[in-house]
Design a protein around this nucleic acid. Structure first.
Length: 471
RNA sequence: GGCGACGUAGCCAAGUGGUAAGGCAGAGGUCUGCAAAAUCUCCACCCCCAGUUCGAGUCUGGGCGUCGCCUCCA
């Protein structure tokens, strides 16, 4: 499988440290607000990557952190979420709030058919590890104590900017007005490993440490959690493109300085979901959640398809028109699959060309758009329905669109005509209409159809008779 | 200002030197009493200007434009 690697800026053949096994780390959510669908785009694409690796026969161990450190008690007040306000009103602790949003995050993931990681580790449960790693970094000269905080000394590194070639001097200081320069830093790029003195005096969670009571810096958690569960050699590290700098850059600095050897070989960055006005984020207004999509009547899997139709390394623009587009496509896809007959002979060799087409799409830097095309090609192919179903089931192990399940549900809904009181009545009306049609009483036939339509029942005439479904 | 990604039809999008996949929307045909569904057909001078090449959406140079990051919204 060829994958683009942010370290080399090229598509490379993906290799693992241990043959056949993939150690995969994903930056998890910060849990003091709901995840928006832009955040979730990353998790969807990472899920597809994980499933593609498994589909190709790899054994994958995936680890995700939960960032529950860094809950400024004042931060909560800026949110408009009722649960959060409620939590405060009811004197819930920040950890309870974190738990609430952690659950909300995994609920969203479940709706989007994102597999639960093999290991999920909250950052607050790893304080001893951070202290251990920071202690060693100080001992080996990579970190220093100044003004109450422990900093990582980036001047000790041969190469700090691993993803981009920044010229330190060319970087403008304070491009953003809100950023203040920290006088304790020896170098412009140094970053904090452990805080005891912070401009955020209202930090809610604090722990004792050799450097005083405080809390860990915001990069150390990923290094430590990854090393604890996946060892000293990581195959694949994922995250949103916005994490590449400084978060991932700093992770590499810490981890490799601590380990004394190269750490993670492959970096997978998912690009942003934009709205017409720019990146989707808390601050820029449009903040769409999975629940909101559901309220508007969209199946969350429609959003998954929307993401799959694009490439993970390309900015994707969200609009309701585009989502409607995906919804129509999904609906049609499911209906075409539902129309496939259940029986028939399976001929594995006949399926092979399409399986190959699908594999080649995935192998080409996870080209999900082409993978979806392979799905359409199967539907159009000269194959038995049984073969088509088998291929669709196989592809869906990666795509995760629950196509056969939804098709089955659709068929069930349509055949549910035979049960229930209301259904009996509808069947009666359909029979009346059939009689009217036989009598060529078109006005009466259309009247019955319109009456049912007004009740939300759509009739579909086929050669075998009239089927119906709820709109 | 620095670094990076990207610019293909109304919309999403594939394409990594050889006469532009696929999906949605749209138009037309078939099938239906009509509709719906299904199915078939149609729909692109690839941001601009130079260059390399027998041949460029695809490579090179220069523009223009969009987006992201530039230390605490992982």
């Amino acid at each position: 499988m060829k994958l683009y690697n942010s370290l080399s800026h090229e598509k490379e053949e993906f290799k693992t440290y241990e043959p056949g096994k993939v150690s995969m780390y994903t930056c998890g959510p910060t849990v003091y607000h709901f995840a928006h669908i832009g955040n979730l785009r990353s998790y969807i694409m990472e899920d597809v990557l994980e499933k593609a690796l498994r589909w190709e026969g790899y054994e994958v161990k995936r680890v995700m952190n939960i960032t529950d450190v860094g809950h400024l008690s004042s931060d909560a007040d800026t949110g408009e979420d009722k649960m959060l306000k409620g939590a405060h009103r009811e004197h819930k602790t920040v950890l309870e709030i974190a738990q609430f949003y952690t659950d909300a995050f995994f609920d969203d993931c479940k709706k989007l058919n994102i597999k639960y990681p093999d290991v999920v580790q909250p950052a607050t449960g790893m304080i001893d590890s951070y202290i251990k790693v920071i202690t060693k970094l100080i001992e080996t000269g990579y970190a220093y104590f100044a003004g109450g905080n422990v900093y990582f000394d980036t001047s000790k590194l041969k190469k700090y900017y691993v993803f981009n070639d920044h010229d330190v001097e060319a970087l403008e200081v304070g491009v953003r007005d809100s950023v203040e320069e920290d006088p304790n830093k020896r170098n412009k790029n140094d970053f904090v490993l452990w805080f005891t003195k912070s401009k955020f005096e209202d930090q809610a969670l604090k722990w004792d440490s050799p450097w005083g009571v405080g809390y860990p810096g915001w990069h150390i958690e990923c290094s430590c959690i990854s090393m604890k569960f996946l060892g000293e050699h990581l195959d694949l590290h994922c995250g949103g493109i916005d994490n590449a700098f400084p978060h991932h850059t700093n992770e590499i600095a810490q981890s490799e300085s601590y380990l004394g050897h190269p750490w993670c070989t492959h970096w997978f960055h998912v690009h942003h979901l934009n709205t017409a006005s720019g990146k989707m984020s808390k601050s820029t207004g449009e903040f769409l959640t999975v629940s909101l999509l559901e309220e508007k009547g969209y199946d969350p899997l429609v959003y998954r398809l929307f993401c799959l139709q694009s490439h993970y390394r390309k900015a994707l623009t969200f609009s309701w028109e585009n989502l409607d587009n995906a919804a129509a496509a999904y609906d049609k896809l499911v209906r075409r699959i539902a129309a496939l007959s259940a029986g028939g002979a399976v001929a594995a060799t006949a399926q092979e060309p399409w399986r190959t087409q699908f594999r080649e799409a995935l192998d080409n830097d996870l080209n999900t758009s082409l993978a979806v095309t392979a799905l359409y090609d199967v539907l159009k192919a000269d194959l038995s329905d049984a073969d088509k179903r088998a291929l669709i089931a196989d592809f869906d192990r990666v795509l995760g669109l629950e196509l056969l399940e939804h098709a089955a549900a659709l068929a069930k809904k349509e055949s549910a005509a035979l049960v229930g009181e209301e259904a009996g009545e509808i069947e009666g009306l359909i029979a009346q209409r059939a009689q009217a049609k036989k009598d060529k009483n078109w006005a009466e036939a259309d009247r019955i159809r319109d009456e049912l339509k007004a009740r939300g029942i759509e009739l579909i005439d086929t050669k075998e008779g009239t089927a119906w479904k709820k709109l």
